[in-house]
Write a protein that binds this DNA or RNA. Structure first.
Lengths: 210, 210
DNA sequence: CGTAACATTGATTGTCTTCAATACGGGTGG
DNA sequence: CCACCCGTATTGAAGACAATCAATGTTACG
């Protein structure tokens, strides 16, 4: 998935060195400041990247989903910049550093898709700042629901805990809960199951445009 | 600066294709959504990257200084993701795409420092979220002053306008002004000239740790 | 059935926004 | 030179908004 057009000669090497891993909800994929020795490509599930501050507080700085890559910094020999935690059961594809080095050395043109990923991460970071850190709490929460809802059919939207919402939006969990309740009362959000809810994306979109 | 160890054979090509440019304060380095054909390395000055939202509002998502690179996305053929505006007189080194392509093709090992830059941008984005979008306005402003003050001798700190502060911190310019005034009254900040101020970084640091 | 984890709601306090007025500083033109 | 004007900064007062502390509901699970 990460390297879309891998030459035949490398397939064997990849087969032998890439393995799938399952993480149950709430388990850590890796810990901030650890020295990374692999790259993780998310197959299914949802992962939060948490930045832990020296004073003990934490802040979610990104959400990763199917197709996203965690731990790019390992390629450069840097320790992981975040603690990565699964928010749902998550399946990842683990790519050890040796494989990355192999690819980069013998097939430098493959570094292009890698740069694409880097840029994508940056775009996501910007989007996080712009959509989730800006404006009234209600607007930011609407943005978050839209973010969680894209690429899902029939308006279904992954549900995440109030505390995680709060940490992402820079508000308290009580405020997150109040606004969610309000959305429900207004019919913008309906609970479907423990893991999904149905959202009126048009109305939510309208909320964000003012 | 960007490519630290360029082989002799390429120096001539670089000399011919890289030129310096000066931007006066408030002038645009480039415009969001333009198709980029060059990379800009900041020599001196200060540049804000502004994300323009569809509804007309804007948000600063990053600040660039000496050694930072703007427009990495151009390498990948993407349009610029931000509008880049000089906050002071700024000198940049403009590197056209042809040069980048040349470097990447003939000397693939040079892509490593490029990746380093990418990662650095990402780290800055994270820092922006964590330090400038989190907590009370006072704490965020303290973080901003610390950011503006690093790598300057004797506690001098670049002054930026209240509106820019506000856009960076997600607050109103009045709130930014009030807090700055309060900092001055408390002796944490003193105006030196129109462009610089002296900050008590230890005290500001303390503010952020709670 | 009891308990633990999470969500909701209420009441109060504190912070930030909003709208509005005023102050300041650096020009320009009379 | 001075009066004026512009852009920016400061300050005030009112109300909106979110944080905080605390209590009550809800759900899942042993």
């Amino acid at each position: 998935m990460l390297f879309s057009d891998v030459p035949e000669s490398l397939l064997e090497h990849l087969q032998n060195n890439i393995d799938d891993k399952k993480f149950i909800s709430h388990s850590k994929l890796y810990q901030q400041d650890e020295t990374g020795n692999s790259l993780l490509s998310i197959r299914t599930g949802l992962v939060k990247l948490v930045r832990e501050l020296p004073n003990g507080t934490t802040r979610i700085v990104r959400l990763l989903r199917r197709g996203d890559v965690a731990g790019l910094e390992a390629i450069l020999g840097h320790p992981y910049q975040h603690t990565a935690v699964a928010l749902q059961e998550t399946h990842v594809c683990r790519i050890p550093m040796s494989t990355i080095d192999h690819l980069n050395k013998d097939h430098s043109h493959l570094s292009h898709p890698l740069m694409e990923r880097w840029q994508r991460s940056l775009n996501e970071a910007d989007r996080f700042i712009v959509e989730l850190c800006t404006g009234a709490a209600e607007v930011r929460l609407a943005h978050l629901l839209l973010f969680l809802g894209v690429k899902t059919k029939n308006g279904n939207c992954m549900v995440i805990g109030r505390e995680d919402m709060a940490s992402m939006l820079g508000i308290t969990l009580e405020t997150a809960s109040r606004i969610m309740s309000d959305f429900k009362r207004r019919g913008l959000v309906k609970e479907i199951s423990g893991t999904h809810c149905q959202c009126d994306f048009e109305q939510l979109q309208l909320l964000t445009h003012k």
